[in-house]
């Protein structure tokens, strides 16, 4: 997918002449499609809105009710859910935040270093290693899972955040290397050639020219890393067993188990809603970047 594709998608936002064209030409057909799309939108959003409203109702009212408006609004479920487990959700949120932020730093640093080498530096074996890097994208992580676990177990890293964070500093998310290589190639060569003439080292070119010019792709990588790490369930499930080290996702899962999924649904939903808040924040404020990222690279979500 090319950049023009992404721009084309986003062009609609600016109300170019294409927008509304069909609305004028065939008002009836257009009204029908709008009606269908609005119906579909409601169907898509209903479960989410319902969960939001359920978090504000008394637990007994959650079942056997399809309405979005609670008969009485109560915020009790939030503190009840927050302290619903042996360890409070504050700890889980803090752990998730630390892991996500360190992952962002690791991914942006390590992947941009590797991408700079692939995109801009000449060295023997570059094409070979680039092909290998692309090959690792295809490898399902299950294939490396068990030896990695044994390795981290022997290093004494289980029940710490290290198995979740250190791989990011070693550019294990090769997808972002690929993403950045694509972007770096679009930056005019003349810039770094001129800098080189002036005797700039590769390091300075990377730091002073490439990185400042690459903010869009670095931001995309940072946001997607944050979202993926925040949502990650499998990694924490394997490496974190002590409840004090749990992430939000693991906390929610324990909540389901401890309650047998029966008694405190409102509390569970309240914590579920809170766990989605950071994602929703990125959706609200960085939507263009997210959509552009998907349209240009075909990321899966």
């Amino acid at each position: 997918m090319t950049d023009t594709a992404a721009k084309a998608v986003l062009d609609d936002d600016r109300g170019t002449e294409v927008v509304g064209l069909d609305d004028k030409r065939k008002p009836w057909a257009s009204a029908l499609i709008h009606a269908l799309l609005i119906g579909a939108s409601i169907l898509m959003l209903y479960p989410l809105l319902w969960m939001l409203s359920a978090s504000f109702r008394p637990s007994q009212e959650i079942f056997n009710s399809t309405s979005l408006i609670p008969s009485e609004v109560s915020v009790d479920a939030y503190p009840r859910g927050w302290f619903g487990l042996r360890v409070s959700f504050g700890v889980f949120f803090w752990n998730s935040l630390v892991i996500a932020l360190l992952s962002v730093i690791g991914n942006v640093m390590a992947c941009s270093l590797a991408a700079f080498a692939f995109a801009r530096l000449q060295f023997r074996g570059r094409n070979f290693w680039f092909a290998i890097m692309l090959g690792t994208l295809m490898l399902p992580y299950h294939v490396t899972l068990i030896p990695q676990y044994v390795l981290f177990l022997n290093l004494g890293w289980v029940n710490t955040i290290l198995p979740l964070v250190v791989p990011k500093f070693l550019a294990a998310d090769a997808f972002f290397i690929f993403l950045m290589v694509q972007f770096f190639r679009g930056i005019p060569k003349e810039l770094d050639e001129a800098a080189m003439m002036d005797g700039c080292s590769p390091w300075r070119i990377y730091w002073k020219i490439m990185l400042p010019l690459s903010m869009p792709v670095l931001a995309t990588a940072a946001i997607f890393t944050f979202l993926w790490t925040w949502d990650d369930f499998f990694g924490p499930l394997i490496y974190l067993n002590d409840m004090r080290t749990f992430t939000v996702q693991l906390g929610l899962r324990s909540f389901v188990d401890s309650q047998g999924g029966q008694s405190d649904w409102a509390g569970l939903f309240a914590m579920s809603i809170l766990s989605l808040v950071p994602i929703f924040f990125f959706f609200l404020f960085f939507q263009r970047l997210l959509i552009q990222g998907i349209a240009t690279t075909g990321m899966k979500r």
């Binding site: 959003l45 989410l48 369930f233 569970l268 939903f269 579920s272 994602i279 939507q287 997210l290 979500r301």
Partner: peptide, 21 residues
């Protein structure tokens, strides 16, 4: 935006919890 939101939230445990209900 509306159609994209579920695929952004979708892999969270929260959504699986919602589905269970």
């Amino acid at each position: 935006a509306i159609f994209y939101l579920p695929s952004l939230l979708g892999t969270s445990v929260a959504i699986a919890v919602l589905w269970r209900q």
